[in-house]
């Protein structure tokens, strides 16, 4: 088989796999609607405010409820010392009047 045929065969295989993954994403999105609705219902029932992503510190567990001075919570000069603090912003500025 010619090398160009081998290349196009490989590329076609990758495109097919990629298309299957896109179909999988689309189908999963529809199938997951019920699960997402359940999670949202749980949030509503329990009056939850945050995702359980980082449980290492109180202000990373409840990012939206964190104190305004979380980065300096232990000392005025203390820097962020939890790894998850490097992924997140503890609080997005309040726009209320």
């Amino acid at each position: 088989m010619r090398k160009s045929s081998l290349f196009f065969l490989g590329l076609t295989a990758e495109v097919i796999v990629f298309s299957f993954l896109l179909v999988h994403a689309s189908l999963s999105e529809s199938f997951q609607q019920d699960v997402l609705a359940q999670k949202s219902a749980l949030v509503k029932t329990l009056r939850l405010t945050d995702l359980c992503l980082f449980t290492e510190a109180r202000y990373t567990r409840h990012l939206s409820q964190a104190d305004l001075n979380t980065a300096f919570q232990d000392h005025p000069l203390s820097l962020e010392h939890f790894p998850s603090g490097s992924f997140t912003q503890p609080y997005v500025k309040n726009e209320t009047p």
Binding site: L53, L63, S64, Q65, Q89, V92, E95, T96
Partner: peptide, 15 residues
């Protein structure tokens, strides 16, 4: 007071 929009924006700005 923390409004729902702020909660949503906090998670919109995560990562």
């Amino acid at each position: 007071p923390i409004i729902r929009d702020e909660i949503l924006r906090t998670y919109d700005s995560i990562f």
